[in-house]
């Protein structure tokens, strides 16, 4: 996509605020709409936009598939681990009040929302990599793959 100057410049401007907005939705979820799931999806959208404009390989170099696998499992482990930690501190599973003397619910929610966000973002980006990375770059000798995405022209509509 080297030639699409407008797309490249606009997405360069937009991607950083998108990442920032994801962090805002992530850590402000107890006060405003949103939370871990929404933040994870917004973060994933920013990375996917980067991949669409600058190529999947560039995105894969920035956010590696290994990191995504660790993130997907790690987020779930953070959530479940919080529950186990509250048991070890003498409470019920996910009884956040046990975590801290004051504001245990707040900190507990921030921690588990972080887990949700990391897992959701990792899974979404990983699925995008798998879909977008198949076919074209990986087997250039397979002629059937060429031109499929580009065969759309405007008057081809019934």
């Amino acid at each position: 996509m080297r030639e699409h100057t407008v797309l490249r410049i606009v997405s360069q401007l937009v991607i950083a605020p998108m990442l920032l907005y994801a962090l805002y939705v992530q850590f402000h979820g107890e006060y405003s709409p949103g939370g871990g799931f929404q933040a994870g999806v917004i973060l994933a959208t920013a990375i996917i936009l980067y991949g669409l404009i600058f190529g999947v390989e560039a995105a894969r170099a920035a956010v590696t598939p290994t990191l995504l696998r660790i993130g997907a499992a790690g987020g779930l482990l953070i959530y479940g681990g919080t529950g186990v930690a509250t048991i070890l501190l003498g409470g019920n599973f996910l009884d956040y009040d046990r975590l801290f003397a004051h504001g245990g619910q707040h900190y507990g929610l921030i921690i588990i929302e972080l887990g949700v966000g990391i897992t959701v973002a990792s899974v979404m980006i990983a699925i995008f990599y798998v879909f977008a990375g198949r076919g074209r770059q990986d087997d250039p000798d397979n002629d059937e793959d060429h031109g499929r995405a580009d065969d759309y022209d405007a008057d081809d509509v019934s």
């Binding site: 979820g29 107890e30 006060y31 405003s32 709409p33 939370g35 996910l94 956040y96 504001g103 619910q105 707040h106 507990g108 929610l109 588990i112 929302e113």
Partner: peptide, 12 residues
């Protein structure tokens, strides 16, 4: 003490 009820219900 979580102002956003949705987050309170989902998380807690």
């Amino acid at each position: 003490h979580i102002p956003n009820t949705v987050t309170a219900v989902l998380g807690s």
